[in-house]
Design a protein around this nucleic acid. Structure first.
Length: 289
DNA sequence: TATGAGCGG
């Protein structure tokens, strides 16, 4: 069976062929009327002439003077000798189009979040206000943080979607104003069974080892692998130079369980690792220094 | 070289 050997390599070939068969005249007369005359060959191989006349007015304010002047410059190089200005048969002169781009089909002007408003207000006032007690310190530094933080949670407006019912849901435990409160956050919640192993979430509460004599190219994952053999590793931090990112030779490894940390320290202290001998000690919480 | 980063300053 004979096979057609003519191959199209690109859709652009079609365009090129079309261009070969078409000639364009394009000029603007003294009355400002632009005439475009195209000579084409149609599918039947017949030559046709297409004439278009366009009258258009330009607002002066849209003309960029340096660009306008550039259109009068004499051409050089391959274009030498041709009339100044863009050749309309090869160059499309577009109108100015202003695009307003946005992401996700949303408005390009994002509405301000509560946080941003607060930031703006702070910048205006130039002053720090505690969200809990309204004192002139950071919320994180509030002396009443422990006692007020929980209350703040409970008093927060019911903006969550987890409590569609008006009243407290039966069997869902202590609530205030219909808002769901996780067991660990309920009043009187102790450190009993089911309590989060992450304690209060403060990293300084975690049993942490300071590991020194760590080689420069040791990564977080390396240490996770190493210490993970003794139990669950909560966090790894490698001391690095702020600019270069090169390790400064020490690291912090936090565990969830103190006994695991103790065992890891016993095993890893003095251990050879990457041509160095690791040193393991209990870390001092940052606040104490 | 040797006890973390950064928060709303």
């Amino acid at each position: 069976m004979a096979t057609e050997t003519i191959q199209k390599t690109s859709w652009a070939d079609d365009v090129d062929n079309e261009l070969e068969h078409s000639k364009v005249e394009d000029f603007v007369d003294e009355n400002g009327i632009r005439t475009i005359i195209e000579y084409k060959t149609n599918e039947d191989g017949k030559k046709i002439k297409v004439t278009r006349k366009i009258k258009r007015t330009l607002r002066k304010s849209l003309v960029n003077h340096s660009v306008a002047e550039r259109k009068t410059w004499a051409k050089f190089g391959g274009e030498k000798g041709n009339a100044p200005g863009p050749d309309r048969s090869t160059t499309t002169v577009g109108e100015e189009v202003f695009l307003k781009l946005s992401v996700g089909n949303k408005s390009a002007e994002p509405e301000k979040t509560e946080e941003q408003v607060m930031k703006a207000n702070l910048a205006k006032a130039g002053k720090v206000t505690c969200r809990l007690c309204k004192g002139d310190h950071f919320t994180a530094k509030c002396p009443y943080k422990d006692s007020l933080a929980g209350l703040d949670e409970l008093a927060a407006p019911a903006d969550d979607t987890l409590a569609p019912l008006d009243g407290p849901m039966p069997g869902i435990g202590a609530t205030a104003g219909g808002k769901y409160v996780p067991p660990s956050m309920r009043a009187g919640a102790g450190r009993g069974a089911g309590e989060s192993m992450y304690r209060s979430g403060n990293r300084d509460d975690l049993p942490t080892l300071r590991v020194t004599n760590v080689s420069e190219d040791t990564t977080d994952n390396d240490l996770r692998d190493l210490f993970g053999t003794f139990g669950r590793v909560a966090r790894v931090y490698i001391g690095r130079d702020r600019e270069t990112g090169i390790g400064k030779g020490y690291a912090f490894v936090s565990f969830e369980d103190r006994a695991v940390a103790q065992k890891a320290m016993d095993k890893v202290h003095g251990m050879g690792y990457d041509n160095l001998i690791l040193n393991c000690q209990w870390s001092q919480p940052r606040e104490q220094r």
